[in-house]
Amino acid sequence: MPAPDQQQRLAALRETIADIERKPALAEAQVTAEQQDGAFPALAGGMLQEMFTDERRNAGALLGFALAQAKGLLTLQRRAVIYLQLGDEAQKLGLPYGPGLLSFGFDPDALVLVRAANMAELLWAAEEAIACRAVAAVVADIGSHSKLLDFTASRRLSLRSAATGGSIFLLRYGQGRAASAAHLRWRLSPAQSTRRRHDARAPGPLRWRVELEKGGLIKNAIKNQTEFLLGWTEDGFATFAAQRRHADRRSGSTPLPRAVPAALADGLPQTA
């Protein structure tokens, strides 16, 4: 007959185990997001998302996609986004640039850049940052492959982010896919921009083609839509029908990424 305090401890331990078992397995965690008319859904926090692009030269578009999602997660309670990069990859991928963030519509004060010396420190910083309840999202920009970033590491990260409600975006490059515990996996490629008003030769509002490779995204999806053609405005994503790849080029009414300076005259190149 165990002593009463031992019984209490046993009961407490059983409760703990039951608590662990009750937690949903990671990939099966239901991601619910509202979707209307095939538009890109507003995704909630607390997810580990992998974002792949085929080549490092698409780094700008990939960061844009991550920051666009992160911007939607910023609130008064969660007012920072932590960007992580290995110190020696700045010249390969480029560093987030303050004035560029402003013109993208993201407040540079909300972005903390962490330049880790190696992958172990980067993963440590990611876990430390996501544990903070004032962080909306962690953007980890990983330009090279590392053995440390394996299934276990991603599982840890996804558990953490599910527990605290902040999101982690892993920016990855290349075509190889390793097993991971990410809730969602995207593949992004830039698409040709649309026509700019009064200057057909200039790049117009941006377009990204994103493809959902993994994860049940939306409950009531129309035909299980997994491909989106996205634009970006200050208010959020603008979705275009993916099959009409070149249709919107003809229609002049496309959302602009931000207020444009007054057009000079038709045909003149704008020195913006």
Partner: peptide, 11 residues
């Protein structure tokens, strides 16, 4: 707010 790139190369 001029039009600036999102990523800048250090060099």
């Amino acid at each position: 707010i001029p039009v600036r790139p999102l990523r800048l190369l250090p060099v």
